[in-house]
Design a protein around this nucleic acid. Structure first.
Length: 338
DNA sequence: CGAATCCA
DNA sequence: TGGATTCGG
């Protein structure tokens, strides 16, 4: 899930139109998980085909990527590889939360509380290897490149940006910046206003851009010091110091300059400090230069329509968006322009 | 979630 | 017509 850095790192809103022509490295699990959690029916069940196989992730992937491809954005998906042994604690916690949510979902359904049921159902979301494999098959059929990282996908995306083969990383997690990605896009969706499942409430979710340079300027900390601050707060690889969040973490690093100094002052010890630092500053990655191709209509139709019962008309409309030229730059044409 | 549809 | 609601699989 990553680190809570939203309060101390500046974000600037970006328009989709400003991203035309850019190559974006998307955190694949992050994206599929969001679809799996959010594309659900009122009782909380995900979309499924006639055989009961979940299709929310495929629906989300096709319609999100086609809508953004129509705006001229190009995507490369990055999937996590083998998690580091130190991530076990986080993964175990995640699994336990899902088991608990499963029971609460069933209880809410039995009590007839559909709103609560949906919320709990979302928390049970689990991406299976089959779902990931089918999403990758869809990407192949769409002509979109993807790569599996040796370990953390966010580090792979950062390395690809450094190599100049993509222009930005797309993820909800701030960790991407700690892995050294110069530029991170969050909330990259099509529509702005989003209704909360509860009741009469909406939230604005607009795409925003964060940069490592912006984080460094705002905090007056180096990249290495930002990593030290995160280690004090707790990361996916270490539990952190109880009571240290973004505010105190920033203050400590500003005043003392390093995790060692901060730990000494707090009377705490982190045995594997250097190993933790290296996980962010020198994470393994592979060389990968993405290339983009045309969608193979037959393959997409076979996968989505024949195998999973998607509407041929809806899939056809989505496919056209990959080949249609993007609208011209600048403000949208209105009737007044004619 | 995005697309399609509904309706003041 | 566009904001709210429902559908999709």
């Amino acid at each position: 899930m990553g680190i809570k850095l939203g309060s101390i790192i500046p974000a600037r809103p970006v328009e989709i139109a400003q991203l035309r022509g850019q190559r974006l490295a998307v955190d694949g699990y992050n994206l599929l998980y969001q679809f799996l959690a959010s594309i659900r029916q009122r009782d909380g069940m995900p979309l499924a085909d006639a055989h009961g196989h979940t299709t929310s992730h495929l629906s989300g992937l096709l319609f999100r990527l086609s809508a953004l491809a129509a705006e001229g954005l190009r995507f490369c998906l990055i999937f996590d590889g083998k998690p580091h042994a130190l991530k076990k604690r986080v993964l175990d916690e995640r699994r336990d939360r899902k088991i608990k949510a499963q029971a609460e979902w069933e209880a809410a359904l039995a009590a007839g509380d559909l709103v609560k049921a949906r919320t709990k159902a979302q928390q049970t979301s689990r991406l299976t290897p089959e779902m990931v494999a089918e999403a990758q098959e869809l990407l192949d059929a769409l002509g979109l490149p993807w790569v599996t990282a040796p370990s953390e996908g966010e580090a792979q995306a950062a390395a690809m940006m450094a190599a100049g083969v993509v222009d930005a990383a797309v993820s909800q997690d701030f960790d991407t910046l700690l892995f050294g990605a110069p530029r991170l896009l969050r909330n990259l969706t099509v529509s702005g206003r989003r209704k909360l499942p509860g009741r009469q409430a909406w939230v604005e979710v607009n795409p925003e851009e964060l940069t490592l340079a912006g984080a460094i300027e705002a905090t007056q900390l180096s990249h290495e010091q930002l990593v030290d601050m995160a280690i004090l707060m707790g990361t996916d690889f270490n539990p952190g110091i109880h009571g240290i969040g973004p505010k105190k973490g920033l203050k400590l690093l500003r005043e003392l300059g390093s995790a060692e100094a901060a730990l000494a002052k707090l009377g705490h010890k982190v045995d594997n400090l250097d190993e933790l630092r290296q996980l962010f500053l020198n994470h393994p990655s592979v060389e990968f230069a993405p290339t983009w191709g045309e969608p193979r209509r037959g393959r997409v139709m076979e996968l989505l329509c024949e195998r999973h019962g998607f509407s041929r008309a809806r899939v056809g409309t989505a496919l056209e968006k990959f080949t249609q030229p993007p609208p011209p730059m600048g403000q949208q044409a209105t009737l007044g322009d004619f």
